[in-house]
Design a protein around this nucleic acid. Structure first.
Lengths: 116, 116
DNA sequence: ATGATAAGTGAGAAGCGTTCTCACTTCCTG
DNA sequence: CAGGAAGTGAGAACGCTTCTCACTTATCAT
């Protein structure tokens, strides 16, 4: 895969177009929408105004760590503190779902940084 | 304030224009950008393709609970479990920042639901 | 008060990502 | 082969956001 991490629809269109001449942008968007619906793809933010997507093979509940250095997206366990959610419930709110995106430096980039 | 919770640039433009004739959309976007930069406003998602913003008076680190019924946005304590973040660190990643949005039903809507 | 400069504004054009439309092709079934 | 469903590419259309430009207002020194 040409995209180790996050990518935009345009990235994908450019790359796919290089391999198979004449793949329409509409087809790319259609495929992306279908994959998002199927849970194989997740939106992890945006870059230059376009939606940033990431492959998302895991079936279980998880979230994403976006490496600010190389753009790689890593799936991580849900880091929510359930005690804090219960505190919100005590205040009268009812939390039904949540979205979390972590930003930081992935293991690979961290090693390279240390080596330097 | 006419907006108890989340609103879009167009919402604001429409409301401001009702009070002061002829406020340009550009001015609204400029003001919103400035307020976001100053931390008085936060992006909490999107609705119909346009960015959803919410007032954000608190100075301390917090996140938002978006009521899916009335659209109100409530500030909540950061519900991140620091033990889980440390687990990510142990795997080699370095988490520097995060974004969390909780979705659910606010206290007011929950009461109304119970009353019915 | 006057003039110079900076800062802010509205109107509308432009840019750009995304979605929609439509004619066309491919595949499947009988 | 006929008929229909499903998928596709090209490009137009849409709508949010940003940019541009002429204009107004505020500030300050003279």
């Amino acid at each position: 895969m040409a995209f180790p991490g996050a990518f935009t629809a345009e990235d994908l269109h450019r790359t796919v177009g290089r391999r198979a001449e004449g793949v329409g942008l509409a087809t790319v968007y259609r495929a992306l929408a279908a994959m998002q619906e199927a849970g194989a793809l997740a939106s992890v933010g945006e870059r230059d105004g376009s939606t940033l997507l990431a492959r998302c093979g895991r079936d279980d509940h998880h979230h994403h760590l976006v490496c600010t250095t190389c753009g790689t997206v890593v799936g991580v366990e849900c880091p929510l503190d359930h005690a804090a959610l219960e505190a919100a419930t005590r205040e009268g709110h009812l939390v039904t779902s949540h979205e979390i995106t972590l930003y930081g430096v992935c293991a690979v980039c961290r090693d390279q940084k240390d080596a330097r």
